[in-house]
């Protein structure tokens, strides 16, 4: 099997002494859509920095499609595109120029780069802004520019460090479908995010990193199947003094007119409503109890 990315025993100690990575190992298969999750300061950006050689590693190895970043760095880099967490283009240059120059740094001749740049800017909705100075773009468009830059040399592996942070819902959905499309066309994608919903929507596999260590590396499906209990929050039309008892469901009163039910995945909530009906309890409205994945995530990080 070909791996798009192979990381072995990667360690990073920053000059100040911070141990950002404590020896992580990670494999991402070719064609995968992989999410790297973790709280602030977990080591996500450090990992990505090392892969793109923007940060020096303390020890360990990184291979991109079998090309080692120590011995075969030019090949490795030509297959990699990175969208950094922080803006890294010159604010005073024009959009068109920034992307064309980036193509040039990959050795793409101007005559070949020009039509590619045009196509990329059109796809990302940046074509109308091609002659604008980068600093005048709104945050969301700056993100798009970062993506255009990272994709201009058709990398086989694209890594995005929180691409949708601070991006509005509409643009986020647009970006999702854009990323799905390029993944379907064969580009392996790794992204970091704090939005679990994003990982759930997009990714097939997921790694969770915390305090510089991998605490989980599994498929999305597997992770979701661990969530066997769902919580529902119900608003009642009349206040209750005490929570009712219904066989097979764990019920709790959050306040006198809010009832929380923990429901096992194999149970239907229809029977819960039937029972509540019999008790004369009317439910005005119902919603999912916060994000289930989020809870699992917090639990996994606490466990260590």
């Amino acid at each position: 099997m070909t791996f798009a990315l192979e990381i072995k025993d990667l360690k990073k100690v920053y000059a100040g002494g911070t141990e950002a990575l404590k020896g992580i190992s990670l494999n991402v298969k070719e064609g995968d859509f992989y999410a790297l999750l973790g709280p602030n300061g977990a080591g996500k950006s450090s990992t990505i920095g090392i892969i793109g050689t923007l940060v020096t590693k303390t020890s360990g190895s990184v291979k991109i499609f079998d090309a080692d970043i120590d011995n075969n760095v030019a090949i490795a880099k030509s297959m990699l595109g990175v969208v950094s967490q922080e803006i890294n283009f010159s604010q005073f240059e024009k959009v068109l120029h920034i992307v064309t120059t980036q193509a040039g740094f990959y050795g793409i001749k101007k005559s070949i780069a020009e039509p590619k740049v045009e196509e990329m800017l059109k796809r990302l909705g940046l074509w109308d802004k091609r002659n604008d100075q980068a600093r005048t773009l709104s945050g969301g468009y700056k993100r798009r520019l970062m993506i255009a830059k990272a994709l201009i040399h058709d990398p086989k592996l694209l890594i995005l460090d929180e691409p949708t942070a601070g991006v509005d819902i509409e643009l986020r959905r647009e970006m999702w479908s854009f990323l799905k499309e390029i993944n379907e066309n064969g580009t392996t994608i790794i992204l970091t995010t704090h939005y679990l919903e994003e990982a759930e929507q997009l990714c097939r596999n997921i790694g969770i990193i915390d305090h510089g260590e991998i605490v989980a590396d599994t498929s999305m499906k597997d992770l979701l199947s661990r969530l066997d209990v769902q919580g529902f929050v119900m608003d009642l039309d009349k206040p209750l003094d005490k929570e009712p008892t219904v066989e097979g469901f764990e019920l709790k009163l959050e306040d006198s007119s809010t009832l929380v039910a923990a429901v096992n995945k194999d149970k239907s909530i229809n029977s819960l409503f039937d029972e509540l009906n019999k008790l004369g309890i009317k439910v005005k409205s119902m919603r999912n109890e916060s994000n289930r994945l989020e809870e699992l995530f917090i639990e996994m990080i606490k466990k260590k």
């Binding site: 923007l54 030019a74 880099k77 283009f89 980036q102 740094f105």
Partner: peptide, 18 residues
Amino acid sequence: YSVKFQKSIEELLISPMP
């Protein structure tokens, strides 16, 4: 220095330029 300061040096470092 300004390339360093603006981080656009990453555009060079990420590329396969020797």
